[in-house]
Design a protein around this nucleic acid. Sequence first.
RNA 1: GCUCCCUUCGUCUAAUGGUUAGGACAUCAGAUUUUCAAUCUGGAAACAGGGGUUCAAUUCCCCUAGGGAGUACCA
Length: 474
Amino acid sequence: MPGKVVTRFAPSPTGFLHIGGARTALFNWVYAKATGGEFLLRIEDTDRARSTEPAIAAILDGLKWLGLDWDGEVVFQFARAERHAEIARQLLAEGKAYRCYASPEELDAMRERARAEGRSPVYDGRWRDRDPAEAPEGAPFAVRFKAPKQGETVVEDQVQGKVVFPNKDLDDLIILRSDGTPTYNLSVVVDDHDMGVTHIIRGDDHLTNAGRQSQIYAALGWDIPVFAHVPLIHGPDGAKMSKRHGALGIDAYRAMGYLPAAMLNYLARLGWSHGDDEIFPIEKMVEWFGLDSLGQSPSRFDFAKLENLNGHYIRASSDADLIAALRDLSPHLPQETGLAGLNDADWRKLELAMPGLKERAKTLIELIEGARFLFAQRPIEIEEKAAKLLTRDARTRLASFHASLARLDDWTVARIEAAARVQAEELGVKLGDLAQPLRAALTGSNVSPGIFEVLFVLGREEALARIEDQATRD
RNA sequence: GCUCCCUUCGUCUAAUGGUUAGGACAUCAGAUUUUCAAUCUGGAAACAGGGGUUCAAUUCCCCUAGGGAGUACCA
């Protein structure tokens, strides 16, 4: 009977939760759900100089926003430093690790020389078999893991297959710094073991570490977890992610108006697929996900596809959910783009206009922009392209229509549309010749939701006033 | 430099030892339409190159090229 699956996401809080991290978290979360296992969260904050509180908050916020909830309490790695040191001392006592008295400067010189002579700049093992008695009195030392020198280390990776590292290329890494604090490769192994992690799904950049960590597991006599190293996500140009194109914090995507469901769906399809399925909720991913269906090649981040997906999710969202998302988003936006000034009546108006608005928006930001005309103060500003539609003839038509609208007894989309069609016929013009000037007068733009909806949502009073503003101009 | 990984339309990807190499985004054309979207129809678009293995390779193996990762008293 196989034991319960335990996965984990283990970011280091030295920056925001980026897109690659989010996807790694997603895969771990989904795999845990798919197998009825647990998904743990561990913050790897052993680098005291670079770890920050805001980064921790950003990671937790990002995961919550995406809905990737973790089981149990968050584990902070630094808090477990004493446990890691204890294991290091155990290794030392068992002769599986040793004290290295070489100073950082000395090591730099060693590496530089190796490089100059065309050799690999690995630690040369100068203290590996040396008698510690030769060490200078009271000199600081780091503890190094005594890695096997001969043979090879094999990592059976679920994604990459069998990966073989020649042991001569994996040097004796430091597991305890000279100040007594543990380093990453030791801490990870001890924590994953202690937390009962069975499956390590992480970025490809850790593949070499998997080799080193396997050696530590072996030295400790612990079971090696299943490894799955997922190819990294590159920028649109195929190179490393940069700020310019995608290496943004997940909160930046939120601020750009992307929906969590769209992010999840997009991330899911990067490096993983299920036949021809493109648009599916995360529940489906849980149903379909398997480590064996992960791709082996790196993928590029494509904003266009994300936008398309986001558009789908916006259209599929209920008006009320979209209003909720906008209210949520509002505090994350700069003042001028925000919805800060809206009162309850404005929000109701926005919800009323939502069916026409959401059809045309790929992001929540576009949605807000499209809704701007709703809250414009008269006389509204007319864009250049819209102004061209308001010719003298057009304004005369508006004046006629204004009179018809004023007589309308029922202010509904259907009645307004009927009135417009009658009006166009009476004037002997195409509907567009009336609709476009109307659009300009009512929204100040040549692009908007269906004009009859606009009339309706604006309300009789405001709509008539805006039409009159143009009809009676000059 | 050394070690490791990767390579199907521009992008994300599917499939297969024998297929017209499929889908999605983007793109182009058309339809629809009060604008823009959305929607519908259609088009263009890929097996990195070279060797093998085989009756047959995009598929299996090797090499080359290109891309990426690692190579810290960072994680």
